[in-house]
Design a protein around this nucleic acid. Sequence first.
DNA 1: AATGAATGAGAATTCATTCAT
DNA 2: TATGAATGAATTCTCATTCAT
Lengths: 217, 217, 217, 217
Amino acid sequence: MLKKLTEEKLAEILETGIAEFAEKGPDRANVNVIAKKAGISVGVLYKYYENKEAFFQACLRRSLGVLESVLHEVIESDDKLLTRAEKMIRAVQRYSREYSNYIKMYNLITSGSGKKYAPLYAAEIESMTAKVYTGFIERAIKDGDIRNDINPRLFAFFFDNLLMMLQFSYCCDYYTERAKVYCGEDILEDDEKVVSELLKFLESAFTFCQSEVVHKK
Amino acid sequence: MLKKLTEEKLAEILETGIAEFAEKGPDRANVNVIAKKAGISVGVLYKYYENKEAFFQACLRRSLGVLESVLHEVIESDDKLLTRAEKMIRAVQRYSREYSNYIKMYNLITSGSGKKYAPLYAAEIESMTAKVYTGFIERAIKDGDIRNDINPRLFAFFFDNLLMMLQFSYCCDYYTERAKVYCGEDILEDDEKVVSELLKFLESAFTFCQSEVVHKK
Amino acid sequence: MLKKLTEEKLAEILETGIAEFAEKGPDRANVNVIAKKAGISVGVLYKYYENKEAFFQACLRRSLGVLESVLHEVIESDDKLLTRAEKMIRAVQRYSREYSNYIKMYNLITSGSGKKYAPLYAAEIESMTAKVYTGFIERAIKDGDIRNDINPRLFAFFFDNLLMMLQFSYCCDYYTERAKVYCGEDILEDDEKVVSELLKFLESAFTFCQSEVVHKK
Amino acid sequence: MLKKLTEEKLAEILETGIAEFAEKGPDRANVNVIAKKAGISVGVLYKYYENKEAFFQACLRRSLGVLESVLHEVIESDDKLLTRAEKMIRAVQRYSREYSNYIKMYNLITSGSGKKYAPLYAAEIESMTAKVYTGFIERAIKDGDIRNDINPRLFAFFFDNLLMMLQFSYCCDYYTERAKVYCGEDILEDDEKVVSELLKFLESAFTFCQSEVVHKK
DNA sequence: AATGAATGAGAATTCATTCAT
DNA sequence: TATGAATGAATTCTCATTCAT
């Protein structure tokens, strides 16, 4: 039916926009080019979206929507904190390849581009994960799974910082290069290495430690 | 004398450019406006820089130069890893306020804008810190200050990820909002809280842990 | 029956067009908007009218048709010239309020918009009144009602000029403001004042005068 | 060409704009075309005028300025009302040919185009003549030159209506055609005829009349 | 026949870059 | 050499018109 077609087409337009915005950035991306690549006329684009800005917002929302739904899948489970963490790291690795453009879009708003929308998006996007992560940590503390001398909100923040950087490292040019500089050319292909080291880092961070360091043999 | 003047003027031009780029982003910043604000003619600007792109690069380099010199001050010391970490966190807090624009410039290249220069910059900027941090960690392991079951490069990577996010949290709109969402409205004014929690996180991450978690009383 | 319906619909479409053209002018008026307001699809509009221009012409013709029929009512009578003049002034005042949009349409072609159609419309619209007015004046001269030393065509022209300006003064923004500037803010509400003064002006213009001016006491 | 814009050039640009606006109307006139015709780039045009609208306003003001200065020349004299009237009619005839475009610009704002500026312009343009004409008439009444049973403001209004229509008749397509329809094909070349008949009309209108009409032989 | 989504040429506006002075 | 006015390509957005359904 016509409606169905339109919806598919709309999705296609958004995807084209996302691809273009992700590659060129919101300013260098050209509305006419996007329309041409999407196989439609500019007119259609402007029928659905008031202006370039609005279209960019739509692309952004779609991207964030996808990312969020992926996140939900992972979060759903009722595992312990570190099991969850592992799942999340693996999820990041998996969908970073598939949804690279969505993450690039996310990256875009973290830089100046989205300026005026920063507060809006930050609240919208981050508050969900913030709440979830903080909740996890609080529960883990109560359950005695992790140390109890920490501020759950700040630790959730550090935790998400690490995940966020991991995401960008897999998807965004600069961060990709940076990861290679730090960890070696092949790091982004060696998923297990990343998982194990990051988990080691996190597990330890969340656990009480001996004051005396004892070297294992 | 003339040369001196020119150099000062050049610095002023770059600073004006940095301010403008940091505020508007590389695409929305206007070369003519920058020239006017710097009190020179566009002609001069184009005498020194081939085009807008080249000028942006120059602003970038200046920004990175400043950041690097600040970093060196901190790195110079010969403290233990966590003492160094504390110094770095405090440094970030201090210069994030003073050099906010430089950090914004840094943030700019991490997003799409710098695309083609990403590899170049990543190598240039990050390899220094990568080497330094990795060296620190290796030394700390040798000295028995921290656990020895870790990959120094990846741990250096995680360490810098946390510092980088902290920097951006103090300077860049989106990250600022995000930090507030995670840690509360006042987090960016409560430097001690950030220092102590992040240090707790890092110290623990770098230390061997008991398998059994024991809750402190 | 169907034809009747269509005719009504057509009238409605034209009225919508007239309203829109009168408000926005021929260029700023939007065909799609008109269609929507008229409750039809653009397709229908383009079925009846070759293009926007043709549709505008149709709106114009309808407007002129209405104005002409109003004019006829007034002209029909067999009064003396000044009685007729009074009737016409009062008619202008009356229908200026009711048919404001038609007069605005008329005003539209008198400005650049209608350019290429100017000769056509001028001939069509004005020749009727020209003939009628000139006829009146010739008859009045013959009847000895007015002076006989005048050129009936030019006096008819002057007469219509005054009526035309009166019309526009009641309906068209600029002319309305202008009338207020000349005659005071309330002039357009004081119909009697306008009638009496204009009649005075006309009566006198059409009458032989003493060479010596004698002031009444 | 990279030549500095002189005042002459600026005047030339305005004249080009006036010509284009007068011919095509404010909406159909094309800024790029005007720039090309004026031998400049669009950029220059937008350097001097914020947007098309502002440029149109500037063209308008220039036109009105010229018209006003012409008017002043005529008004300056200290003649009797009808002598003045004659001078004005002849002035209209003279400058209608030379300054046809300025009058077309004037005509443009009297139609819908200027809509939002109507009140502004009406006040600005018309109040001068309104005051002058009304003053003339009041003086003429005091001097016993004309009848004293009239409202000076309204008679000034009627007087200006006739002059305005005359102007448009000489310059604006529709009005030109209309004049021919009323007065014959050659009317606009026969200046004397227009002068004498219109003066006859005016003189009479401003003079007391015998109640009894006496036919001259 | 009627619809109205889609088309795309056209117009306004911006701004990096040039170059005559 | 420095200036900044001038350039015009590029981009966004509109809307008269078409045509598949």
